[in-house]
Nucleic acid binder design. Structure first.
Lengths: 122, 122
DNA sequence: TAAATATGCAACAACATAGTTGCATGTCGT
DNA sequence: ACGACATGCAACTATGTTGTTGCATATTTA
C-alpha cells in the first residue's frame, strides 16, 4: 500500500501539541459575538467594556463573560486604568491557530498531490 | 484622533459575511476530538466510522455525533459504500476559516504599523 | 461629600453539548 | 438463510454555555 510513507508524519501531526493546543482557541472564536469582539479589538485601540457593549443587543455582563472566555484562550488581555478596564487584542495565540489551519491545509494539498500522481500513472 | 481613517474599513470587516460565517466553522473545530478527526481525514483517505473510532476512548456513537457536527459545518462529507459510511475531508470551509484569521492578523499588523509610524513622528 | 460612572459578583433560567446504553436495521460472506 | 459486521435511532444523564437580573464596590467629577 502507499499510505505507510506518510503515515508517520500524519501521526506526528496528531501527537504534536500544536493541534491539540489549538482546540480551545477555536472554541473561543466559535461564537459570533466573540468573533466580533476580536475583530473590533484587532483594529488596534484598547476599549472598555462599556464601549464594547455599545451597539450590541446583549448586556454588559454578557460581554464581560465573553471577554473572559477570550482571555482564558489568550486572545485578549486587559489593562486596568482607573475605574475602567481596557481590553486589547493579543496576537500570539491567533497566530498559533493560523499555523494549525495551515498545517491541515498543507496536509490536504499533499494528499491531493499524491492522488494526482497516482492518476497520472494509470 | 487617528482612528477615523481606518474606522470604515474595520466596520466593513465586521459587516461583511466573511467573519460571521466563520463562527460555526471555528465552533466545529473547537473540540479536541473533532480537531483530531479533521487531522486524520485531511491525510487523504476516506475512513469508516469504525476506523475513526479505533484508537479512541469514546464510543462509536459519540464519534458519529462529532462527525455530524463537522458535516453541519461543511468540514467533512460522507459517502455511503455498501454497509459502510465513509467520511472524507472537505477543504473549502476550512479555507474560509483560514482567510478569516488572515484578515484579522492583517488588520492587527496594520494597526501595529500605524502605531510604529506615530512613535517615529514623536 | 454626593451623584454619576464603570465595573464586579452571585444566583438563576434556558438551552446546548458530550457521552452513554439499548435495541433496531441493513449488508456482506458462507 | 444465517451469523457477523457496520451503522442508525432514541432515550437518558451530566455538564457546560449563554444570557439575564439584582446588588455591591470602586473611581471620577461637581
Amino acid at each position: 500500500m502507499s499510505p505507510p510513507a506518510n503515515a508517520r508524519s500524519s501521526k506526528a501531526l496528531l501527537k504534536g501539541p500544536a493541534l491539540r493546543k489549538s482546540a480551545p482557541i477555536f472554541a473561543a472564536l466559535g461564537d459570533e459575538t466573540r468573533l466580533r469582539l476580536v475583530a473590533v479589538l484587532c483594529a488596534g485601540s484598547a476599549l472598555s467594556i462599556a464601549q464594547l457593549t455599545d451597539g450590541t443587543d446583549i448586556t454588559r455582563q454578557a460581554v464581560t463573560k465573553h471577554l473572559q472566555v477570550l482571555a482564558d484562550a489568550g486572545l485578549v488581555r486587559d489593562v486596568k486604568v482607573g475605574r475602567e478596564r481596557l481590553w486589547e487584542f493579543e496576537s500570539s495565540r491567533l497566530d498559533e491557530a493560523r499555523r494549525s489551519l495551515d498545517i491541515i491545509a498543507q496536509q490536504w494539498d499533499a494528499a491531493l498531490g499524491r492522488l494526482q500522481l497516482a492518476l497520472e500513472r494509470s
